[in-house]
Design a protein around this nucleic acid. Sequence first.
DNA 1: GTTGTCTACCTGTCAGACAACATGGTAGCA
DNA 2: TGCTACCATGTTGTCTGACAGGTAGACAAC
Lengths: 240, 240
Amino acid sequence: MEFRKVRPTKASTEVAQQLLRAIKEGVFPVDAKLPSEAELAQRMGVSRPTVREALSALEAVGLIEARPGIGNFVKNPTESMAFEALFLLETEASCLEIMEARTILEPAVAELAAQKRTDDQISLLFAICEELQSLAHPARFDEYFTADKRFHLALVQATGNTLLAAAMTPLINTMDQRIYREFTRAYYMKDLPSITEVAALHREVAEAVAAGEPHKAREAMEAHWRRMWRLVSGEEILTR
Amino acid sequence: MEFRKVRPTKASTEVAQQLLRAIKEGVFPVDAKLPSEAELAQRMGVSRPTVREALSALEAVGLIEARPGIGNFVKNPTESMAFEALFLLETEASCLEIMEARTILEPAVAELAAQKRTDDQISLLFAICEELQSLAHPARFDEYFTADKRFHLALVQATGNTLLAAAMTPLINTMDQRIYREFTRAYYMKDLPSITEVAALHREVAEAVAAGEPHKAREAMEAHWRRMWRLVSGEEILTR
DNA sequence: GTTGTCTACCTGTCAGACAACATGGTAGCA
DNA sequence: TGCTACCATGTTGTCTGACAGGTAGACAAC
């Protein structure tokens, strides 16, 4: 006979779970404003500090956003997806680690996306490719950069696998906030031909995904990352 | 001229970041007890509710654990790694999604592990393989199951890439808590030969990783997941 | 039409208090 | 001596009430 550990649940935890369920069930859709803390406290029969602890937890995992003086709002989970706090733990020398991780994971993502993508997702990928090509100019660095990020996010979305997106999104977003930016800016400012080449590689991925050719999509993404590594350090990590 | 958005930082956020940094710097190692909330409040010049909000956030992302009447303790990040809250959002039909994600990602992980592993990590992988083979018995289902999980976690660790581990760990851990368990138990109880075969596939992965053969490691892991899919549903998702 | 002001609402923070819980020591008892 | 019951202490969990500061909308003044 086995006994499970009894763990008395905190009121704040239960408040968080109730809110979680409500959000999950669509009671509070993305961008919706939650009831005020005072109202939540009253309706759940707890005090405001307890509600605030629950909200603090939900904010920490990136599910809601607190806007002072206005209210608490539901965030798009796949866009924020927490982890910022976790990744703070390895903030310094991790840029190359992120690139390494993305280098090995994203070809697999591209492969799956080529099997599962919908027509809408194909359109989105191509639209971003257009943007990338039109933004290939030093003065529009920031716009180009976010477009690049959106391409990779859209690709993960195209797999239709929300958990895969949940795992990859922080890797893609975090890179945005890190040294990668410096790397990119450095080469981008002086090497315009390279950037158009990378943009073209994005298009290759999109075309393979659109055509439903998993193997080709994988290879295009591998080529993309090989090019990126040459750009940032001049050396290769892919051995095969 | 561009202006940046002004966003005043909350005191509770700063408290959380200070604690985060302290943990990261090893001031509070794993399993260590943090100072009491009252002491933290006094030393940081804020009130206890503010400290509690910060602690609530850290607990939500799985960095600390609050034990009532005792104190707050630092958790092993790679073992907890939050997300439980996030994945609650997609609790139902997501088991196959997790398998799908792991099926495409883990071969890439195995490939990298074969390039980066250390001797210690090789020993650990083989040790777990031994366990798996000795535990291949219906009565020891639970032990077998956690050993299986530890194998995959150890493999990610063997890549030496902490961010990759951070992204993969929740996928591996979450599967443990989900329907997968039911699947596995179902076949495991009646299909002992299959389980020994899967255990053998683990060993193949370990051997390829130990030998430093990335391509072989990838193929062994792909074979592992093909076998898993046959076991749970009798159909294949890998097209190549 | 723009600016300033007022008001109502909401979040962020604080102080103090009490209950529940866990730990360790102590006194009482066999 | 050895065990048990009790209590003091420290800590977390929760509550109440309050105030400061930010935000948005309405309205008056220029």
